[in-house]
């Protein structure tokens, strides 16, 4: 690991997490890839696990590139938390990339990637990678989007992601 100061002004923020703001989680489930895929993409199924026991209201879930999603979680002690974002990539049975924002931390966008691997013995590996952006970085991305359209904005994001992967 090197520090994030190699390129660009947007990567210079002091960070308090490992690998500068990337979180990786992994699990192997004793379930076919199709079942796991459906658990991630069918609203009725998502509602049964995503809330970790809390009531989950799925207000919107358009599982396709550019589609919006918004979930509202209700905790037993009466708290309400809204989460939302946009799907950036949906490759059936394989990969979902979407942005994630919690109402309580507006502007702190997370880019979530979930990848499924069929292990061939009825089990499926799930790898989740989450990349955090500060509001400054996100605003920079939005700004570039306004200047040159969404395609360029995505390209900028791709470059940023590639740079981070390289490290």
């Amino acid at each position: 690991m090197t520090t994030a100061t190699r390129t660009g002004t947007t990567m210079r923020h002091t960070l308090t997490t490992p690998t500068d703001r990337t979180i990786r989680v992994e699990r192997i489930f004793d379930a076919t890839r199709d079942r796991v895929w459906r658990a991630y993409t069918e609203p009725a199924l998502v509602a049964q696990w995503w809330g970790r026991g809390n009531t989950l209201v799925i207000e919107k879930m358009e599982v396709q590139r550019g589609g919006h999603w918004r979930y509202v979680e209700h905790t037993p002690d009466g708290e309400t938390h809204g989460f939302e974002g946009r799907y950036r990539e949906v490759t059936p049975q394989d990969r979902i990339v979407r942005t994630f924002e919690w109402d309580g931390m507006p502007g702190h966008t997370i880019l979530e990637t979930v990848e499924l691997t069929d292990l061939g013995d009825g089990r499926t590996r799930v790898v989740g990678t989450s990349l955090f952006f500060t509001p400054e970085e996100r605003d920079g991305m939005l700004h570039s989007g306004m200047e040159g359209g969404m395609a360029q904005s995505y390209e900028a994001l791709d470059r940023l992601l590639a740079e981070r992967r390289d490290r």
């Binding site: 979180i23 699990r27 489930f29 796991v36 658990a39 696990w49 995503w50 026991g53 989740g128």
Partner: peptide, 12 residues
């Protein structure tokens, strides 16, 4: 995220 994956495992 970790709790969600635990929850997904239980659901499956």
């Amino acid at each position: 995220l970790e709790a969600q994956l635990d929850s997904l495992g239980e659901f499956l």
